[in-house]
């Protein structure tokens, strides 16, 4: 069998998706990145290999997510795309009619507006992580609940309390205050969901025409409290796609298929054996000028696979054997 692989390596989760020749999702993995993207990718490939066998052929690889460059280096990607395009491609392939995508992930949230299957507008949160998955994670941890249980609590609420959602720091103190007053836990969690949704629509959704059909995807779509709060706020039904948590990876797989199909070139994929290779990641401060850029270097044995982080291109343009670099006068 032959497949296309899509990898979405984000701050919180590392997702891998395999699609087969009929565009069907063969395998979908959702792993926690736990701050170690390289290990997470290798672990994911190992798991995929045991499921599809070594004979399976990977025809093309696409990567996306905030660690897309790192993932591309490790896997040998044919296409590297930003998350917005990847999410939009996956959504419009599965639901050609979709006009709005709400996406909330670990560290970022976005809204994508499509018309006739084409992205016409989008917005992403700024540096602030208020109203993203990692905030929900934190709050669940503070209450000592697994995130799954935390999410289902909201549905049991009778009378959600009002919580300030503008900033997650204020939201937290508001929650503690409400809790000390004696409000029930489900009411507080439901209030938090509503506050997050309000904040999302006021910030990310500002100046956007949110028209149905609407898709809600990203890891946070697993939270029924948020789903319900969105439906109440927008006054219409919101669909959660079957593979909501891995839509970015799915989009990357579709993009790889598009690219490889168009150019008919062999894939750059390093092979399923890459799960066993040892990669070394390191960083150092370049002392070439006053900028002191932090350079990240990925090595496999003695070979430098990739370097980035420099502003001038002195390092990123220079990959290959370390010996050659020394000869060229670099460190």
């Amino acid at each position: 069998m032959s497949y296309f692989l899509g990898a979405d390596v984000g701050s919180v989760s590392t997702n891998l998706v395999l699609i087969d020749a009929d565009n069907k999702v063969k395998e979908a993995l959702y792993l926690r990145t736990k701050g170690q993207p390289m290990q997470a990718i290798q672990k994911g490939i190992k798991m995929l290999r045991t499921r599809i066998g070594l004979k399976a052929q990977i025809m093309g690889v696409g990567t996306t997510g905030s660690a897309r460059q790192l993932a591309a280096t490790l896997l040998g990607a044919d296409v590297i795309k930003n998350e917005i395009t990847a999410h939009a491609v996956a959504a419009s392939r599965l639901y050609p009619q979709v006009r709005t995508i709400l996406e909330i992930g670990g560290q970022d949230s976005k809204i994508i507006i499509l018309r006739d299957g084409i992205v016409v507008d989008f917005a992403m949160n700024t540096v602030c992580a208020a109203g993203t998955g990692s905030f929900l994670d934190q709050q669940a941890a503070r209450l000592g609940l697994p995130i799954g249980e935390f999410a289902s609590l909201a549905v049991k609420a009778d009378n959600p309390v009002r919580i300030a959602g503008r900033c997650s720091v204020f939201a937290e103190s508001d929650m503690i205050h409400k809790q000390q007053l004696g409000h029930s836990l489900p009411d507080i969690v439901a209030g938090l969901c509503q506050a997050m949704v309000r904040n999302y629509l006021n910030n990310i959704g500002k100046n956007k025409r949110i028209l149905g059909p609407i898709l809600f995807q990203g890891g946070v779509a697993a939270n029924p409290g948020i789903h319900r709060a969105f439906e109440n706020e927008l006054g219409q039904e919101i669909t959660i796609p079957e593979h909501f948590s891995v839509m970015g990876a799915l989009g990357a797989a579709y993009l790889a298929q598009e690219k490889v199909g168009l150019t008919a070139k062999p894939t750059h994929f390093r092979g399923l054996e890459m799960a066993e290779s040892s990669f070394q990641a390191g960083s150092f401060d370049c002392s070439g000028c006053a900028n002191n850029c932090e350079i990240i270097r990925i090595k496999q044995n003695e070979e430098i696979l990739a370097q980035w982080g420099d502003r001038c291109g002195k390092w990123s343009g220079n990959i290959g054997k370390e010996e050659d670099n020394k000869a060229a006068g670099h460190k």
């Binding site: 795309k81 930003n82 998350e83 917005i84 395009t85 084409i118 992205v119 016409v120 507008d121 989008f122 992403m124």
Partner: peptide, 8 residues
Amino acid sequence: RIEAFVDM
């Protein structure tokens, strides 16, 4: 952001 904007 730039990539997504140009792609769009």
